[in-house]
Design a protein around this nucleic acid. Sequence first.
DNA 1: CGCACCTTTGACTCACTTCAATGAGGGTGG
DNA 2: CCACCCTCATTGAAGTGAGTCAAAGGTGCG
Lengths: 202, 202
Amino acid sequence: MSLAKRNYSRGDYLYRSGDKFRSLYAIHSGSFKTQVLHDDGREQVTGFQMAGEIIGLDAISTDIHTCEAIALESSVICEISFNRLEALSREIPPLQRQIHKLMSREIVRDQGIMLLLGSMRAEERLAAFLLNLSQRYAARGLSPTQFNLRMSRQEIGSYLGLKLETVSRAFSHFQEAGLIIVKIRAIEIIDLSGLQACLSRG
Amino acid sequence: MSLAKRNYSRGDYLYRSGDKFRSLYAIHSGSFKTQVLHDDGREQVTGFQMAGEIIGLDAISTDIHTCEAIALESSVICEISFNRLEALSREIPPLQRQIHKLMSREIVRDQGIMLLLGSMRAEERLAAFLLNLSQRYAARGLSPTQFNLRMSRQEIGSYLGLKLETVSRAFSHFQEAGLIIVKIRAIEIIDLSGLQACLSRG
DNA sequence: CGCACCTTTGACTCACTTCAATGAGGGTGG
DNA sequence: CCACCCTCATTGAAGTGAGTCAAAGGTGCG
């Protein structure tokens, strides 16, 4: 299994829309955003990925990448040859199952975003976003209540289907309500259950 | 490979959110909608599936279905044991690749919906929806310009992140513009390229 | 130190939602 | 076979949440 490591700096493309599919990419450290492009130049961020997550699954379908992945900070990537992974998984059934689970998890994640984009209001979306980040930091042994955002308001807005001003206002409003403390990209969640209540209340 | 066929009537559940994962389901004839549920009862339609498509991929992730699938009309389903499919795919590499492509295609489809929900206006969304249906009917040897919708305005709205009234108004507007003829659920596309232009124009 | 970029905030606008009323089909039972 | 009812679709009018436009304030990088 090829496990070459490579470094990427903020703004570097891991792959672009239209690139030939070569490998999957495991994020060893750092973080990325993935986005799809519309004909007229509009772009939609489809996800923010952090250490331990695997990207590039979109390209298996047609052997061409349909989205692009860009580093949000200095990052290290392990490249995984998909052909060799497939071959290996034929010999190791648990690995095969893991690959299937990985892809299925991505499908479930996407469904959650559709729910968010299709039926939540602005502040619910941002609350869901913050809670998701919180969980993922916690899963990595980091603080679930204090972290630095790796992405701009504009990128958050694109991901959540909102304009950057709306994201900024929602942050301010959460802060006024005593739910969080925002210092530009530094976030502290003061009232986790309050944020969760934001979600269910509608 | 278990390939038991079973009939479903309009409104029947193929599976519900929370159901144990048993099989994948190939739609032999008819059509389904899949939807995810939010705590507070809101629901988001995540897709409309027709003959030849496979549903249930979401459940591989956790062995529990995360969405529900409901028949939109009388339909016939082939149940596919996933364990047997996995075993078989270890012996038949092209089958393995097909399964991966299938799951990847679902991920790409979901990305397209995120783009739609996150950055298109109401009429663009409906145009994209109609063009997508048109392509899929064409791929099945049916007319790409004349077909009957299997779903209600409310269901289309949920899928597109719009209220049913907005969907209805967009249909009426397309008709006034000479792009389509709508008779409740019967659609005739008069000006395919006009609809396509709707998309790129913004 | 200075420039470029990001963020915040306010005022105004608008696309979509909400509320409400009317109308068209389709199925069922008298 | 027709009348009734129920559901779904259309349309109008009024309301609102988020977008747009604009300006000012912060940050951090080179």
